[in-house]
Structures are given as C-alpha cells and as structure tokens.
Design a protein around this nucleic acid. Structure first.
Lengths: 197, 197
DNA sequence: CCCATCATGTAAGGCGTTACATGATTAC
DNA sequence: GTAATCATGTAACGCCTTACATGATGGG
C-alpha cells in the first residue's frame, strides 16, 4: 500500500525506470524499504494496471531495455488525495529495548558491553546519513544516485526546506538515541543516591 | 524470531498464560506487537516443542482453562545468549516523511493542516504513554494489567533503572518528534532569510 | 576468471495482522 | 439484547525480504 504511494511520489517528481527507483530506495533512509526490493516491479505492474502510471520502453544498445514509467493525471489525483490524508504515527521497532528489559541478568561489564555496541551501531548509522547528506549527488554523467530527497535538487525553496527537514528528522532521531545511551551509561556508573525527605 | 525472545524474557520474569502475554503486548509500547496478536499462541507452541518452556494446565470453574507457561533452564540459556548478542539498530518507518516529501504540491494551509494532524497524533501517543507510566499497575485483585516493564515492579534497583530508561526512550522519541514539527512549522511561517557572504 | 553493473522479473519464505471460530459468564 | 471478558486456537492475507533466473558488458 505505502510502497505504491512512495513510487507515485517519486514519479510525480520525474519519470523513472524500476531500476532507478530501486536504487533510490536503496540509497535513502527516508524511504525505508530495503536495498534489493523487488516488490517495486510488481508494484509498478499494479500501478500500471490501475492506470496511475504509463510506461514507455527505451531500447538501448549494449544494455538491456528500460521501462520508463510516468505518472498519469489519475495517478496525480490519487497521490494528491493521499498527501492530504490523515498522517499515521511513525512505527518504531526497537528490539534492543526488549533486550535491555531483561539485561539485569547480565553482569555490569556485560551490560555495558552491549550498550557500547548499541551506541556504536547508532553512531555508524548517523555517520552514513551525514555523509549522504553532504554528497552532491549528481554524478558527472548527469545521472542521479542518491538524489532522492536531496535538498540541493529541490524545485522550490519550500521543497528544499521540506527535504532538509526530512533529513534532520532522521539525524535528530539518531542523536536522541545517542544522548539516551550516554545518559543510561552514566546512570549505571553512578547509582542513584537516596533522596532526603 | 524476535517475538520468541520477547516471550522468553517475560517468562523469565514470571510464569504466564498466552492470554496474559497477549494483554501485556497490547498494553506496552516497548513490546511493539499489536494488540490482538495471535502469533503468540503459535510461538508458545514452538517454544514448547523446543523445550524452552514447560506448560501446566490450570482448570478454573466458570472460566476456560488456562495454560500456564514457565521457562526451562534451556530457555534461560537461550535467553541469556540473546541478551549478550549484538544489538540491532532500531527500525523506524515513518510514512509521514514520505508524505511530506511531496507536500510541496499542497497549499500553505493544506500543508500546515497535515502538520497539525501529525503533531496531534504524536501528542496523543505521548499522553497515553505518560498516563501508563504513572499508573500503579497492580489491580486490587492482585492481577497485573500493564505491569510489564513498570519500574515500580522491578526486582532490583538496576532493573528499575533499566525499565524507567526504556520508558524514557519512548517518551524522548515522541518529544523529539514534537520538537521537530514545531521547528518545521516555524520555518514554514518565516521563510529563511538570505545569508550575507 | 570472477565480480559488478545494467535491467527485468519470478518464487518462496518469514513475520505480522485480521478475521473467524468456540463457548461460557457478566455488565449495560 | 448486545457487548465485553475470559481463553484458546486456525486460516487467510498482506507486506517485505531473499534467493534465484537471465544475459550482456566492462573492470580488476
């Protein structure tokens, strides 16, 4: 369901092949789908059947033919309705918190070890994000790589603002997580003193 | 996979029926599974087959019989291994960000309207969380309702700290989200001034 | 020689949700 | 009378991931 709107959104931006979309999904965190997501081919077929997109075949020499998809007016309407519809709350699944819940069974050292591992994991994700955010994503041949949602490629100042705030949302999420681990480790080092009454 | 460990964790805390576990999943945000999750019955069957849990049947008058599950030593070992294993990064799926990405097609009013809806949605979730956090979750009959991961019911000071920090993780996530929307709305009201160089 | 890239797709499996089924009791 | 609670479970569906299949070109 959501993936179809994500694709429609991309196509409202510019015409793309399935392969292009796949690469963009892989290179973006905002689009949360996994790198090698072959769902998009079936999703595109569905969108085509519903007449929300049209497809033209671009034959290339030396390389396989590409199927280039464009959004139709009907598709634009459908997208517009979705954009105006009730936003859903984010869904966050953090299995680490379940791990932590029973971590009192671990020794002080073991507990700190997994906290450090978690911190490093988050730090890594944050770094990757920040590197991507700084990339000027237009390759010399004019192709885009991680162009999706890059503020430098936005069409209006407002769109640039939205896109940079989307990046910031991700960055602040990881930063919030880092602050939280730091605080937790501190508290574990210095157990809470008893309060006077 | 993850659900089995979540159940093992709960059973390492105390013996429970499938129905109990179901209610706890429904009443907790840390355990991210949905309210009417019947997966747990099949998961319990799997755990039983693997001999990670034992089951005893408690016959009741007036009410259907309950199957009470307890963790075995083998189950404890399995849980211990998982607790010490590499934590995974949280996975966050925020379809609202995809909505926002193409929201430049909306009017100023329409855009602000969905931002307000999103803010309210988050605020609601936060409130529910905070209310739950304040509940003293032991009902007069001695049964627990949302007892899972309630710091008041922790067995050691360290466990209480962990559990309260798990709650804080959720609260800070929503608060971070609220700050972000506030900032975005402000920026949309007062478009960015050009910088001097 | 092997691997990566380009480009499309199918098939199978895993995980989670929703709906359905049963059946008694209690509350509005 | 209808709904909710207690308590278990099955079946179907949806979404996503992984693996597999094809087949050419170009680089290390």
């Amino acid at each position: 369901m959501a993936i179809e709107y994500a694709i429609l959104g991309l196509l409202s931006w510019q015409k793309l092949s399935g392969y292009d979309i796949k690469k963009m999904f892989a290179g973006s965190s905002a689009l949360y789908w996994s790198g090698n997501n072959n769902q998009i081919y079936t999703a595109l077929a569905k969108l085509h059947k519903k007449e929300l997109v049209t497809r033209e075949i671009e034959v290339q020499e030396d390389k396989p033919a590409r199927k280039i998809y464009s959004i139709t007016d009907k598709g634009q309407d459908e997208l517009g309705n979705w954009l105006r519809s009730m936003p859903e709350a984010p869904d966050l699944k953090n299995s680490f918190l379940i791990q932590l819940a029973w971590a009192d069974q671990l020794s002080v050292e073991e507990l700190d070890a997994i906290l450090v591992k978690y911190r490093d994991e988050i730090q890594n994700h944050l770094l990757i994000l920040q590197v991507k955010a700084e990339e000027k994503d237009i390759a010399p041949d004019g192709n885009f790589r991680n162009a999706y949602i890059n503020p430098a490629l936005a069409r209006t100042p407002r769109e640039a603002l939205l896109w940079s705030m989307i990046q910031e949302n991700w960055i602040s999420f990881y930063q919030n997580e880092l602050n939280w681990v730091r605080k937790l480790r501190l508290k574990l080092l210095t157990p809470e003193p008893k309060r006077r009454r």
